[in-house]
Design a protein around this nucleic acid. Structure first.
Length: 511
RNA sequence: GGCCCCAUCGUCUAGUGGUUAGGACUCCAGAUUUUCAAUCUGGCAACCGGAGUUCGACUCUCCGUGGGGUCACCA
């Protein structure tokens, strides 16, 4: 822990939260904010709270909330508090806390720190236009600020449309707070008009609900995206009107699209669920996201969640926004795939085979979809193991290994040809392979034996590819693949011989 | 436009007054290899500009420039 950070932290007392609104899927940006909050909490043995900010009923949806919860859990970012539902915690929801906001709203109104405003939207808009036209800063002019109680009551009883505004205390000229990443930040309150904090007693608006909740939930540190910097003075103003303590604010730089704009719904903000579907591992995403704007200051770059917790420090977070670099993500994912045990990797990959319609699962057994022939888990493991170090994303496995599950391959004649070989030479090469392989007894059909039989023959030519390339393509019909010995072993003697014959025949066809 | 934030290789970054400016990804070359990966070795590549402070600035200050955020009865 750095000295600066220490000033603000009492171990065990830290309480942080993430407060997503369920108006979209969990994307990388909010996942990172969640992760940093989580790491900070764990690092200081504190609490990490999930609060769903669904005060905007129009835009919120349970579908999004479900997505947020699921993917947070998948990433291993587990909240440590909330209504208990049998060993698990529900998140807090603002929609379930309305009476709390009402209480504080009434208090503010009673103490005359807030007031009803009956100005129409049109009126406000016109005023704004006018202010801008004469070069003034737009802001509410305070027309309703001095309404008599009698008048307010009258309008209210008439059900005249209204909102609740907070009174901007004139004696406060400047709002200053210390951002753990950015240092001292200062704002001029003169620039802020009396802001609307609620549509009515039952419908608080964002800035108000946040302040109340952070206070009620005893949040010590608010760690959120940079887009909230300008909300912070507003929230501090509300705290002061309410007479409640300030909390520590820290603003994380944004994750940027390749054009340096903010990652947004229409520009590259890919849902976490989508990465998951493509076959990125959660440990990849966690490691990757953590390093977007943070770095332990050493040269180590591979970190599990546990080691991240150990090393994490807010003060080491970069101030500038970071561009999301997919190439690096892929590299990391390849790394983590290579670390997986073959059992676990198989488990993960099977779903992709099934989804691609290559295999089906019936009564706990796997069958090749095309032939209904059973395929053992052992065989599937072998298939996956030979592609383990080639995989960048799990989803690639079905494309890479599809030939294991197909009866006939549509050979590309040219692909069977190695370098400058003629068709005749390719045919001869295939014949040689077939002849040699036929001699191997089925019981001895292992990759070692296959290699032992073929290699001496391949060595005879100055270029091993003369024998091995046509064979490999005969077995796979692919430009690139694992070694023919490994593939032949998995395919079995019969299928191997059959494929060599099929490819030979394809060479005999005109075009 | 107002207010605010930011600025080291193409990208993610280390660096807190004196360094051959380090690492990782990408890219390139070599080794290995039937192919593609993986792996190993090597290479290309950066302090936004200008003033100041200082014996000395990537580092501190100011001014530019550039990029970004935000200006709702959304969150």
């Amino acid at each position: 822990m750095t000295k600066e950070e220490f000033k603000f932290i009492r171990p065990g007392k830290v309480r942080v939260r993430i407060a997503p609104s369920p108006t979209g899927f969990l994307h990388i940006g909010s996942a990172r904010t969640a992760l940093f909050n989580y790491l900070f909490a764990k690092k200081h043995q504190g609490s990490f709270i999930l609060r769903i900010e669904d005060t905007d009923i129009e835009r919120s949806s349970p579908e999004f909330e479900k997505d947020i919860l699921e993917n947070l859990k998948w990433l291993g970012i587990q909240w440590s508090e909330g209504p208990d539902i049998g060993g698990e915690y529900e998140p807090y929801r603002q929609s379930e806390r309305k009476n709390i906001y009402t209480k504080y709203l009434k208090k503010l109104l009673d103490e005359n720190n807030a007031y009803y405003c009956f100005c129409s939207k049109e009126e406000i808009e016109a005023q704004k236009q006018y202010q801008m036209s004469i070069g003034e800063i737009p802001g509410y002019n305070g027309k309703c600020a001095s309404l008599l109680t009698k008048e307010v009551k009258k309008y209210l009883s008439q059900e005249k449309e209204s909102v609740i505004r907070i009174r901007n205390p004139l004696h406060i000229k400047k709002i200053v707070f210390n951002d753990l990443i950015r240092g001292r930040l200062e704002f001029d309150t003169g620039l802020m008009g009396d802001m609307i904090i609620a549509k009515n007693l039952l419908s608080p608006l964002y800035n108000f609900a946040v302040v109340i909740d952070d206070f009620e939930m005893k949040i010590t540190h608010v760690i959120r995206g940079e887009e909230h910097i300008s909300n912070t003075p507003k929230q501090i103003l509300i705290q002061q009107a309410l007479g409640i303590p300030k909390v520590e604010y820290t603003h994380l730089s944004l994750i940027l699209a390749p054009d340096k704009s903010k990652l947004s719904k229409r520009h590259g903000a890919i849902p976490v669920a989508e990465y998951r579907k493509q076959g990125y591992l959660s440990e990849t995403l966690v490691n990757f996201i953590a390093f977007l704007g943070w770095n332990p200051g050493t040269e180590r770059e591979i970190f599990s969640m546990a080691s991240l917790v150990k090393e994490f420090s807010l003060t080491k977070v970069q101030k500038a926004g970071a561009i999301f670099n997919v190439k690096r993500l892929d590299y990391l994912n390849g790394f983590y795939i290579r670390q997986k045990s073959i059992d676990r990797l198989t488990e993960l990959c099977l779903a992709y085979f099934i989804e691609a319609g290559l295999i089906i699962k019936q009564d706990e057994k796997f069958k090749i979809k095309e032939t209904k022939e059973e395929i053992s888990l052992e065989t599937l493991k072998k298939i996956i193991s030979i592609y383990q170090e080639r995989l960048k994303k799990l989803s690639e496995i079905s494309e890479l290994a599809d030939f294991f599950f197909k009866e006939k391959l549509n050979y590309d004649k040219n692909r069977l040809i190695w370098k400058e070989m003629s068709i005749q030479e390719v045919k001869k090469s295939l014949l040689t392979s077939e002849k040699l392989l036929a001699k191997i007894k089925p019981d001895n059909w292992t990759k070692e034996n296959i290699e032992r039989v073929l290699m001496p023959e391949a060595e005879k030519a100055k270029d091993r590819g003369v024998l091995l390339w046509p064979l490999r393509v005969a077995l796979t019909n692919k430009q690139a693949s694992a070694s023919p010995f490994e593939i032949a072993e998995i395919l079995g003697k019969d299928k191997t011989i059959k494929r060599i014959k099929q490819s030979f025949e394809s060479l005999c066809l005109k075009n």
